[in-house]
Design a protein around this nucleic acid. Structure first.
Lengths: 195, 195
DNA sequence: ACTATATTAGAGAGGCATCTCTAGAACGTC
DNA sequence: GACGTTCTAGAGATGCCTCTCTAATATAGT
């Protein structure tokens, strides 16, 4: 009942990911995305309300793809400490498998124009954040750790630390070294060990 | 022998820092800096070769100010592990004392237009990086740790981990909690402990 | 006072990006 | 095969930013 689209949504978002990985969020302009896929700017504005909407979609699609595997890893074992290790390893392994998407994650929602997002997009983002917070809190509880300080330590161990490892290499323009997963797992374990 | 300047360099860089902390590096436009201090754009271009030069100066001044105290902390004790703890604590304490500059550090040289910097600015940046690398390598040696993996673990412990802690809070728009220094020190120590 | 010099002062050209608007093309359906 | 819908297509208005250029101005030294 309608004309078929030459430029579908995933294709446009893929182009945006590539641009973001290469030149950062500021490189993701409507013109640049259009030029990458060979579409006129009108087609882009037909699909996205504006640049903010495009940025939000790229960011959310990437984060949600990442988080899917992350949660699975975190809950992959009955031993909470093993779950923490698996989660840490997943951060590195996923980044190795998706270097462009990982480069994107190292920025933040803020740099993807979060302040200009629609209510809908903000809701989607919040939902993911809440899930992460809940999962980490559950992990801390299972480890017998309580209090704000302990919670923060667990967050560092299973989120920020492995992300730091990825950042260190990607920001330097290198690929992740072969031992990165091992290192992340060991460091996470060291942080989860001491109370 | 010359007309006195109404707008001196530190004043302009301070304005740039404020803008970067508020809206990121992309918010540091020549017009914005000029408007902040009330200067016409001509005065800015008299002092800086262009926007890249301004960005480089802000970034380098901030990094160098940070590193000064960082090195002092790292070498503050004969016990290398105590030095590592002090360095970690310094990252957090300095960030608490200089929240705007810290927000700036959480971006990276790349986002401050490093690709467009002059040879001079690149040299200044490299010098700082080499010093850090050397200091961390010395710390690893003093701890009896050798090899790439160990070196990377030490880097994570004394650089990336405390920076992650700062990032976690500043990105969320919060101030650093009172216990942040303690937490950073403990986590760094935990990572330096296991071989 | 005069000169040399460093700086302010600001208008304006040129470029790039966002977004709007109108026209037309392709497809399923009746 | 005509119709309605969805999309492509791209020209153009608007705005911001970088950077240049020229003129004016204030100070120190002679």
């Amino acid at each position: 009942m309608a004309r078929p689209s030459r430029f579908d949504l995933p294709q446009l978002l893929d182009a945006a990911v590539r641009l973001a990985a290469e030149s950062g969020p500021s490189g993701v302009t409507m013109s640049a995305v259009a030029a990458t896929v060979g579409a006129p700017s009108g087609s882009l504005y037909h699909r996205f309300a504006g640049r903010s909407a495009l940025l939000a979609e790229v960011w959310l699609r990437t984060v949600e793809d990442f988080q899917e595997g992350y949660f699975a890893a975190l809950e992959s074992s009955d031993d909470p400490r093993a779950g923490g290790r698996a989660a840490s390893r997943h951060v590195v392994a996923w980044s190795r498998g998706h270097p462009q998407e990982a480069a994107l994650l190292l920025y933040g929602a803020h740099e993807f124009g979060r302040d200009d997002w629609s209510e809908e997009h903000l809701l989607r983002a919040d939902e993911g954040n809440m899930q992460v917070r809940a999962a980490v809190a559950a992990l801390a509880g299972a480890l017998g750790l309580h209090g704000r300080l302990a919670l923060e330590r667990v967050s560092l161990a299973v989120i920020d630390l492995p992300l730091s490892l990825v950042r260190r290499h990607l920001r330097a323009g290198e690929a992740l070294p072969p031992h990165a997963e091992e290192l992340a797992e060991q460091c996470t374990d060291a942080l989860l060990a001491g109370g």
